[in-house]
Amino acid sequence: MTATMDEHQEGSTRRNFLYIGTGAFASVGMAAVIWPFVDQMNPDASQKALASIEVDISPVAVGQAITVLWRGKPVFIRHRGASEIEEAGKVDVASLRDPQKDSERTKKPEWLVMVGICTHLGCVPNGQKTGDVKGDYNGWFCPCHGSHYDTSGRIRKGPAPRNLDVPDYSFVSDTKIKIG
């Protein structure tokens, strides 16, 4: 063969560059292709569009609560009485597992709006109806694993790590709220 050692090496370097370059280019494409196959499982456009609902709260009397469905999840809307508000305000925030003042959790003290899903493993706590077991703190009680929530929906006892979530909501008027 007439090729010198140098020419050989140069040739093989060029080859390696071509192989690695092609491999890298193909890998980038493969990686990009994966995304649509994954993203298709995320909430679709029709689900995202259901993001907000308006609720008429005028029929809810003091001491009553209603449950509405928002994004497929129950939302508790409770018309609290003076004693409940007082009870919720008295608590020493520093002693709580998830420290939060009652005023941080409400827009108007008499209306408590929260996602009715226990932050432990996703059950719906009892306490919406008058006859329900409301737990040791007179709020909500999750029957699945025994989490107790107070009148502000804060976790007081049991395995749940956080207070019941407060969704984004606003008062459209005195009798109407918009969730989401």
Partner: peptide
């Protein structure tokens, strides 16, 4: 465009 470039590269690799 991506696939045409990739075809070209693959052809070069195959030729080599």
């Amino acid at each position: 465009i991506y696939l045409i470039i990739l075809s070209g590269l693959m052809y070069a690799v195959k030729r080599t």
